[in-house]
Each structure stands twice: as C-alpha cells, then as structure tokens.
C-alpha cells in the first residue's frame, strides 16, 4: 500500500527500490557463483567414491589410491599447460604431437635398445627443448602471422608427430635399458609414486603463479577482455608466446614420463591424452572462452575423470562404455554450468 502510494507521487523511488533489490540478488548470486561449481564437483567426487567403494571393496585401498593418482598425473601435467592456454581463450591441440616428438627424442638420447648415445640428463633437456620450440612456434605463428590457435596447433600436432615418426625411423621399437629410468616413475616415495609428487609440485607452482604473479593475473585479464588488456599496456603477445611455451614444455614432460612409464616409445606415445585433458579442464569449470577458471579446478576435473574410469573398471563395467560415460559427464557438466546463464540474447559458440 505504502509503496503504491509512493509510486503515484514519485515514480523514481519505486524504480530505485526495484533496482536495489535486483542488485542485492545479483551480488548474492555472485558471492556463491565462484564457489558453487567446485563444491558441486567435490560433491560429485564424493558420491562417485562412495558408490565405487560399495561396489568393490578393492576400490578404497591405498594401492588403488596410488593407482588413481599416478593415472591422473600425466593428464594433470598436460592440464596445467592446457589451463593456461584455455584461460586466454585459445586452445592447444598439439599435445599428442609434442608428446610423441619429446618422447622419441628422450628415449633415443638415453641408454636404449638401439644403442646410440646416452646423454644422461641432456636427454631430458633436449626433449623438453623440442617441446619448448614447438610451443614457441605455436605462440609466434598465433601472434605474428595471426592464425587462430585452433589451426596453428592443429598443424603443429602433425608436425610434432612427423618429427617423432622421422626420428623413430623404421628400426625396431626402442626400449629404455636403464632400469633407474623405467622404475623412477612408479617408485614410491613417502606413500605415493614419484610422478604423483612431480605433478603435485607443478600444480602448486602453477596455482601460485596464476594467483600471485603479474603474469598470472595478466593471463586472466587477456582471457577476460583482450582489448582492454592491450589498451592497458600489457605485452599481450609476449604473454601469449610464454603461455604456449609453458604448454609445449608440459606436453614434452608428459611425453618423457609416458615413455618412461612404458619403458619404450613409439611416435604414438601421446595417443589419447588430448581427449582426456581438454574434457578434464572443461569439466573443472574453466571456460573455453577464456578468463574464468583455474588450476585447482582442472585438478578436480582430472581426478573426477580418473576416479570414474578406475572405478568403472573395478566395478566390472566393460571398457567399451567408458568413453560414453566420460562424454555424458562432460555434457552434463557443461549444461549444468551454463543453465543458469541462459538468455534469449546470450551467445554461446
């Protein structure tokens, strides 16, 4: 009654009330928006873990936890690089090619069944350098020749595979002969395998870089609005090249570790990793349009997919169904994330 009276006398008052109420609702929504998604993911993870523990008592054991974490390590390492790239709104499809090139270089330069040189630590350096070079090529072609990252990295995927295939040649499968290398990945130090600690350390460093350094904040700013980042004087192109170099280096490291895990290498050592990593990053809540997301979300996404795959195997589900379940979860996750933001004028590509 009071309000309607006011409205008759002074329409402005009711207008501002409506706006104020609207803003309050908005700010309340905003406060929870950042936390809602990770909480939902953790909830989903807990539900999955409980169900799988009931289905198979072997699921909730230390040995299986070690298994799950070491399965998650390589996608996580690649995911750290991929998250940086996706945060600036680009995409890196070259993961599998870079892994192949780095893996082959690493094995051929270490003590292997084909003979040749054993460069020791320099094999690591050379393999990572290949990844960095391919990543730098991605970044430079994106920023100088201005080709979309989708196409550049798509081409670089085949270039990496090509380098791997040429170096691999036609001889027999080269396997690592140094046992110290082949057992390092799965060697258990303080409860968990080495590779898990390595992935965790990289995750922590990347989280800190993204949160507390100028480079990290610039990454988010570029993804949020590149034009504004540029007009504020950020060296956007330089940051983009650095980000692709990081992604290339991470893929190369993953290639080395994959070769060490297998104890041997072929050019297809990275096969399948791209289509684990990108869904994991997206399920974690990092937006493909850039500017929104983070490292810990990616870690949650990787964990969710790994727990799902591992649990399904232990529950006796045929592996044939696995890609369908991962796919269905990806679809459900993105639909749930986008549902509240639907609008007639909203544009989603």
């Amino acid at each position: 009654m009071d309000i309607t009276l006011k409205a008759e006398h002074d329409p402005m008052t009711t207008d501002t009330t409506a706006i104020r109420l609207h803003e309050e609702t908005n700010s309340r929504r905003l406060r929870f928006r950042g936390k809602g998604e990770p909480l939902a993911l953790i909830g989903a993870l807990i539900v999955l873990i409980s169900i799988f523990s009931i289905l198979n008592p072997r699921f909730a054991t230390l040995v299986n936890l070690q298994n799950i974490l070491s399965q998650a390590s390589l996608p996580l390492i690649i995911g750290v690089g991929a998250t940086f790239v996706i945060l600036i709104g680009s995409i890196d499809l070259s993961v599998e090619g870079v892994m192949g090139a780095a893996g082959v270089v690493f094995v051929l330069l270490s003590a292997n069944s084909r003979g040749g040189h054993d460069l020791g630590i320099w094999a690591w350096v050379a393999a990572i350098a290949i990844g960095i070079a391919l990543g730098a090529a991605n970044g430079l072609i994106l920023t100088r020749i201005k080709l979309p990252s989708f196409i550049v990295t798509f081409g670089m995927w085949f270039i990496g595979l090509g380098i791997a295939t040429i170096l691999y040649g036609t001889d027999a499968l080269p396997s690592l002969t140094n046992d110290a290398l082949t057992t390092w990945v799965s060697h258990i130090a303080f409860l968990f395998p080495n590779v898990v600690w390595l992935a965790a350390a990289l995750l922590i460093v990347a989280t800190l870089v993204l949160r507390f350094t100028i480079f990290g904040r610039a990454t988010l700013a570029i993804g949020n609005n590149e034009e504004i980042a540029r007009s504020n004087g950020m060296p956007v192109n330089k940051y983009k090249v650095v980000i692709f170099i990081i992604a290339g280096g991470m893929s190369a490291l993953a290639g080395i570790l994959a070769a060490m895990q297998l104890g041997a290498v072929s050019n297809n050592v990275g096969s399948g990793y791209l289509f684990i990593t990108i869904p994991a990053v997206v399920i974690g809540g990092t937006a493909l349009s850039g500017g929104k997301g983070g490292m810990l979300q990616t870690a949650l996404g990787v964990l969710l997919l790994t727990v799902l795959n591992n649990g399904l195997v232990l529950a006796g589900v045929s592996p044939d169904y696995q890609s369908a379940l991962s796919g269905a979860i990806l679809v459900a996750a993105i639909v749930a994330a986008a549902w509240s933001q639907r609008g007639r004028l909203r544009i989603a590509k």
Binding site: G327, I334, A338, K349
Partner: peptide, 27 residues
C-alpha cells in the same frame, strides 16, 4: 538442440557427444 537451447560451447558439447557416439559404435 543442446547447443541452441542449453547455450553451451559447441566445442565441449560435441567433444562429449563424440565420446558417446564412439562408444555406441563400439557397443
């Protein structure tokens, strides 16, 4: 329908349905 009405990024959506159709082909 999902791209148009749920307004999700098509890259992620079709990556998901890619997995579903692939598994369907296998099964």
């Amino acid at each position: 329908v999902i791209v148009a009405f749920a307004q999700v990024p098509s890259f992620a959506l079709t990556l998901g349905t890619f997995g579903i159709f692939q598994a369907a082909a296998l099964v």
